[in-house]
């Protein structure tokens, strides 16, 4: 019984307020599509998407939110709108202090402490993710 129940819940078809999620997803894709042709519009749409998510308390994956700059809301695409590099600011240059930096064209940096090993975002952890 329990297994059946799990399966039923995993297919995520009967999500309440599905329209909010659909709107966020639509805005994300539209913003991605317009990133090069109309950068300002794309940023506006991404901002809109963020606000819709906050207002309706719709949770989205960190992996989705990471792809948008926190300052200028532009889509982070390597080679086009962002540069990335590994830096180590420690004196001893110990590998544990390696930091991966994603730098947006607006200058905002997003830093990932890469040297500390694999970090699994909450929705992907064992026991949380259902497949």
């Amino acid at each position: 019984m329990a297994k059946k129940d799990n399966k039923k819940k995993n297919n995520a078809k009967n999500v309440p307020h599905r329209d909010n999620y659909a709107r966020i997803s639509y805005l994300y894709q539209l913003s991605n599509h317009l990133t090069l042709s109309h950068p300002a519009l794309a940023r506006g749409l991404a901002r809109n998407m963020d606000l819709v998510g906050k207002k309706t308390v719709s949770k989205s994956s960190p992996l989705l939110k990471r792809t948008i700059c926190k300052q200028c809301q532009s889509m982070l695409i390597p080679g086009l709108t962002m540069t990335m590099y590994v830096e180590n600011l420690s004196k001893q240059k110990s590998p544990i202090n390696d930091v991966l930096v994603w730098k947006c064209t607006c200058g905002k940096c997003r830093r990932f402490p890469v040297g500390k090993g694999e970090y699994v975002v909450f929705p992907d952890r064992n026991g949380v993710r259902i497949d």
Binding site: P16, S25, K59, G117, G127
Partner: peptide, 30 residues
């Protein structure tokens, strides 16, 4: 490293709190 597990309650106070399992929807990258 082995993939991280969801954090579990460690202190007695935490253990006493009753929790139920719920399923929450989350939006992934399309």
């Amino acid at each position: 490293n082995a993939p991280k597990k969801a954090p579990k309650a460690s202190s007695l106070k935490e253990l006493e709190k009753k929790k139920k399992q719920v399923f929450k929807p989350i939006l992934d990258n399309p």
